[in-house]
Structures are given as C-alpha cells and as structure tokens.
Design a protein around this nucleic acid. Sequence first.
DNA 1: CCCTTTATGTAGCGATCGATACAGAGAGGA
DNA 2: TCCTCTCTGTATCGATCGCTACATAAAGGG
Lengths: 202, 202
Amino acid sequence: MGKGRPRTFDRDEALDRATMEFWRHGYEATSIAGLTGAMGINPPSLYAAFGDKRRLFAEVVERYQRSYGEFAARALAEEPTARAAIERVLREAAVEYTDPAHPWGCLIITAAVNCGSPDVEAEMRAQREASKAVIRDRIAADLDAGHLPTGTDPDALATFYAATIQGISTQARDGVPRERLETVADLAMRAWPATGQPRGVR
Amino acid sequence: MGKGRPRTFDRDEALDRATMEFWRHGYEATSIAGLTGAMGINPPSLYAAFGDKRRLFAEVVERYQRSYGEFAARALAEEPTARAAIERVLREAAVEYTDPAHPWGCLIITAAVNCGSPDVEAEMRAQREASKAVIRDRIAADLDAGHLPTGTDPDALATFYAATIQGISTQARDGVPRERLETVADLAMRAWPATGQPRGVR
DNA sequence: CCCTTTATGTAGCGATCGATACAGAGAGGA
DNA sequence: TCCTCTCTGTATCGATCGCTACATAAAGGG
C-alpha cells in the first residue's frame, strides 16, 4: 500500500467542510466551486477522493446520520419507555437544530426538498420514512408491552411526532430560539395517549 | 390604451402554469426553459409580461396567498374561538396539502427552503413569520377575552401550531395520505390548554 | 537511477443557467 | 397609407453548471 503521491489534505476534514456546505445551502444550491472553495481543494482532488457530487452528498448524509443525527436513534434505544424516548428526541432536536456551531435545522429534512434531482429527493425521503418507522416500531413495542392504551395507533402517533420534528427543524431554520422550540416539544408531548388517571388531577 | 400588438396568451393562465412549476420544483430548480415550456410561451414574452424570474415568483406567491393559502386566514377570521379556528386550519391544511389537483404541501413552506438566493429565502421566511403572527394574535385575542387560562403563552402556542402545519406540509410532500394528516391535526389539538374540567372526565 | 502509481493545479470541455438583441408581426392613431 | 407601439419567435449573450484532459509533482518498488 501507499503507492503513488499521497493526498495533501485531510479527507475527513474536507468531508466536514462539505457537510457544512450542503447543510447550509442544500444539495442543488451547493456548487462544485462552492464545495472546493470551502474544502480548500481543486475539482480534480474532489472527484478523485469522492467520485462525483452525488456520491459526495451520499457520503455526507451517511456521516451526518452517524454523528449529528445519531441522537434520535440513541434516545429511542436507551430510554425505558417510548414516551420518555420521544420526549427526549424532541427536546434534543430543539437543542441540536439551534446549535450555533453548525447550520440550523436538520440536513436530512431540508437539504433535498427541492433539489432538482428526483433520485436524491427520493433517497432523502426514504431516510425520513426510515426514521419515522423507527419511532413507530418503538411505540408499537410499548403498545405490545401494555404500556399504552389498547387502540393506540402507532403509525398515527409516529406520523405526528415525525411532523413535529420536521416542524421544529423548519422553525429552527427560520431563527426561532432554542427555548421556544423546547416549549414546542413540551406541547407536543401533551398529545401522548393518557395511560392512567386523567390530566389535571394529582 | 390598447396600443401595440396584443399578447397572444392568457396572462392568468400562464401565471397558473408558472405557479405549478414553482410549487412542484421550488424556486431554484425551476428554470426559465421549464417555465416557458409549461406556460407555452417564449422567453421574451415571459420577460415582457412578468419582469424577471424573481418578480414572476413574487407574483406567483402573491397569487398563491390569495387562493390556495387563503383558507388559513379565513378560518382564523371566521371561527368564533381561537381553538376552533386553529383546529379548522390544521384539518383544512391536511386536505389542501394532499389535494391531487396540485402539487403536495405548501408553496410558501417548501418552495424556497434552499433556493440559492438569500433575498428570496428571507422573503418567504417573512411570509411564514407573518402567518405565525396571525395565529398568535388570534390566540392573544382569545386570551384577552378570557377564553384561555391565564398564563397561556400565545407565542409558544403559535410556534407549536406553525410547526405542526409545516410538519403536515412536509409529510404531505412525502406522500402521507390525507386521513393520516387529519389524525395528526387531531393529535396536535390535544396540546390546546385545558380550560374547564380535566380531560378523560365526562 | 528509472518506472509505475496516484494526487495536484491549470485550463477548459459541453451543457445549461437567467436574460436579451434583433427583426418581423399585428394592433391603434394620424 | 404610414408611423408608432407592443408583442412574438429565433438565435443568441456572458456566466456558471458539473465534470475532466493534460502535464507536472511526489511517493514506493525495482
């Protein structure tokens, strides 16, 4: 191994720069010139290291899922109940999507809304559907375990909370501060099916 | 008036065709070639009648607000209470955003998410903020009238329901059927502040 | 040393972007 | 009829798009 001239830039750091570009401007509005400028390399280096724009974006998305997007899967896996898991997902989304250290909102939700390429759009849509399915399965598991009222519709609840997360992402993009989005998360949890005694009674 | 050669196409119909293009593909991904193709005219006719792409889009947005987007303002003005108004807005959004007669979702929410032009993005953001302000004012009016518990935060509630509407729009774009989104609307209404006796008690 | 291999910078490919120059066509006013 | 005015179709404009050919540079293997 190690034959040929070694590359003079850090591949992971270049990938991070590309992530920020796609995150901020979306797939279509991010140009190769913008990418190479942000990554500090020239087009041939980009194509040699990452294939083309489409494959670079795919790698960015994959990396994003394993870093910035990991909080949701972690909450769903770690929390003891579906309710606690989803509440944590919503609150962490409010924090994550407004983090000033990176562009606001969720890359998966916003980067390929109107990207011109039906393939890329479909791929991101599939990612969103997969995330929703994880939420649904977590709810269905609690329903089977008897932690939720019989008749609860896991798919309906999952759609509602997926919509809430997407709404939080859009609001974050529009500049709504973290505290407000945490309130949104709290309000969304009032839609959770009542298990024991009715609300307002202690 | 009426001097010079009259135009040979219907301006309103061409505007409708342009609306569908922007609605489906977003601002950036809609090209002049795509527009002229859908409108059945040539570029000089487009520029003579509508100025440029930016002004054509502005006119499309204005027209959209007065037609497809009118249902929200109408519900907020007509319904007797803020609660009834917002419930109607959500349910009508579920219907409107999945109408097979036009592209899914809301043009104001999705058409300029990542459009490359900061000006256009800011303009659409302002539109969304204005819609949210109308919701907030309607809630504040009910709060002043004593129809809501003291301590209710109109801005927090308005942000939550704006986020819900945006989530419904995104889900509609992803192909979620109308019935599911109506269920999302119902679930979102469970976040409404309890006024009288607690829930679950009849 | 030379050969192979891979990365780099320059410079530019064909295609498409938004936007127009230009000449002809079709209307009203004199 | 002739002039003026506006719209229409053709045929582009310069700029930018994603992408790459080409020569050179820097490494390892013989």
